[in-house]
């Protein structure tokens, strides 16, 4: 805090600190206590947070992930079983064999 110059000058060139997480033990214990108090690391003074693939996969079988979030949107055929609420064609299809590849197919974007 003893640096000279206006706050703008001091803030301008600062890099976002980076913290890479490969294991839960690397997660700082004061993670959610950045000034301003949000859990997001984009708060001033917070660091961008990276997770590698293996850490993310380790979390996949946590008990918290066995059921959907209780307040997730209820969409028949997607987040809840197909019900009578909608007559719409199911989002999930019965598998058909793939159409044969056409070598002369021009790349057509269909979006």
């Amino acid at each position: 805090m003893s640096a000279t110059g206006s706050p703008q000058q001091r803030v301008a060139g600062r890099e976002i600190p980076v913290r890479r997480i490969a294991d839960l033990s690397h997660l700082p214990s004061d993670y959610s206590t950045t000034p301003g108090g949000s859990i997001f690391s984009t708060t001033p003074g917070g660091s961008r947070i990276y997770y590698d693939r293996s850490f993310l996969l380790q979390c996949r079988n946590s008990p918290l992930t066995k059921s959907p979030p209780p307040n997730m949107a209820k969409i028949p055929g997607v987040t809840v079983p197909e019900g009578s609420e909608t007559k719409e064609k199911s989002v999930v299809e019965e598998k058909k064999p793939n159409p044969p590849a056409d070598p002369d197919d021009q790349f057509q974007m269909e979006i």
């Binding site: 859990i39 979390c59 996949r60 918290l64 992930t65 066995k66 959907p68 307040n71 969409i75 997607v78």
Partner: peptide
């Protein structure tokens, strides 16, 4: 919109439970 996740576990709880 299905859900907004803000944690790794929240992400998987959606991913594991949608088609």
């Amino acid at each position: 919109k299905l859900y907004t996740v803000s944690t790794v576990q929240g992400f998987w709880s959606v991913y594991n439970n949608i088609p």
